[in-house]
């Protein structure tokens, strides 16, 4: 049986809607951003749904206030706006305040990377992983399919503190047909291989799977891992998993070399004294206004399957010499 791919947000929102019937402490706050499933929340729980309007600063502060009164809050907006428009509110009223108070606020940002393909750089989001991981106390999740996105619901409820859920705006193919990744582990091993391991997050997992398939045909067999939990993955187990490789390739739909997942992995390798070379792949260059499909845009900025395959093949060749 094949599972029909769904939008990440709809799957999580469906879980929230179901839970709101039993759990009177769940509150949903939107910054004038919707979805068909959100209409059910608005209709069925008008007392615990509020639309603050196009006002992300207030979205965060109101969410913090509700959380201080004991509510588990889901705040919902487009990814660049829910992270960057209101970054100081997030820092002060969520990251800093959670150092002193138990607050549970879950930011759902829709529009990871280039997923708002034709909307251009205002609505695309290549800086959020860097910014959100910069704050202590924040948990950051980057799912690659709707099964993972839905599984994050339990973590949102069971773990206090502020969280950022980076969701794709497009419907992505299902990866986890059998079972969602183990969120205690925070990553999922797809393939074990030789020489180098690809470590991808979000949409880039799909690219990494394509690249690994192509490379395998030419006899290169890299490992492949999906990183879901950017901040609190099981470091011990990831270090064990990487033992035996000479190289690690990070793949993120965010600016390369600007403090995102690549910087996190560099810190991880250095701190644990792991002897792996790092090839960090992400969006090259700056902001661009060209129109194109997501695949075309990705090739232009160095993270399309062809570009990634070339870079990885050369990297592995250098390692194996």
């Amino acid at each position: 049986m094949t599972t029909k791919p769904l939008a990440m947000r709809d799957v999580l929102l469906e879980r929230i809607w179901q839970a709101m019937a039993q759990d009177a402490k769940i509150f949903f706050v939107s910054a004038d951003f919707g979805s068909p499933i959100l209409d059910k929340i608005r209709t069925d729980f008008p007392n615990r749904f509020v639309n603050v309007g196009i006002a992300e600063q207030n979205l965060i502060n109101v969410s913090a206030g509700l959380a201080l009164e004991g509510f588990t809050v889901f705040a919902y907006a487009i990814a660049p706006f829910i992270t960057m428009r209101c970054y100081e509110q997030i820092r002060v009223s969520l990251a800093l305040l959670s150092e002193a108070r138990p607050i549970n606020v879950n930011l759902i940002g829709v529009g990871a990377g280039y997923s708002y393909v034709v909307s251009g750089p205002t609505h695309q989001c290549y800086e959020d992983l860097t910014l959100m991981r910069a704050m202590p106390n924040f948990q950051v999740f980057s799912p690659a399919d709707h099964i993972t996105a839905g599984a994050l619901f339990e973590r949102c409820l069971s773990s206090t503190g502020p969280k950022y859920l980076r969701f794709d705006a497009q419907i992505l193919p299902v990866i986890y047909e059998q079972a969602a990744p183990d969120l205690q582990l925070g990553f999922h091993v797809h393939r074990r291989g030789k020489h180098a391991c690809l470590l991808a997050t979000g949409y880039m997992l799909h690219t990494a799977l394509k690249v690994a398939d192509i490379l395998e045909k030419s006899g290169i067999v890299p490992g492949l891992i999906d990183l879901v939990d950017i901040m609190r993955f099981d470091e011990e187990r990831l270090a064990d998993e990487l033992a035996g490789y000479q190289g690690l390739v990070s793949l993120e739909e965010g600016f390369r070399g600007r403090g995102g997942v690549d910087a996190m992995l560099f810190d991880f390798l250095t701190r644990r004294e792991l002897p792996l070379k790092l090839l960090n792949l992400g969006v090259e260059g700056g902001y661009r206004f060209e129109l194109g499909t997501r695949a075309e845009l990705h090739e232009q900025v160095g993270i399309g399957p062809e570009a990634v395959q070339r870079r990885v093949a050369a990297f592995i060749q250098a390692l194996s010499q």
């Binding site: 502060n61 109101v62 206030g65 201080l68 009164e69 004991g70």
Partner: peptide, 16 residues
């Protein structure tokens, strides 16, 4: 920041 956070608290107290 105070007024926004306080508004959230006031809404929460109202709903409780």
């Amino acid at each position: 920041h105070g007024l926004g956070v306080a508004s959230g608290m006031a809404l929460g107290l109202n709903r409780l």
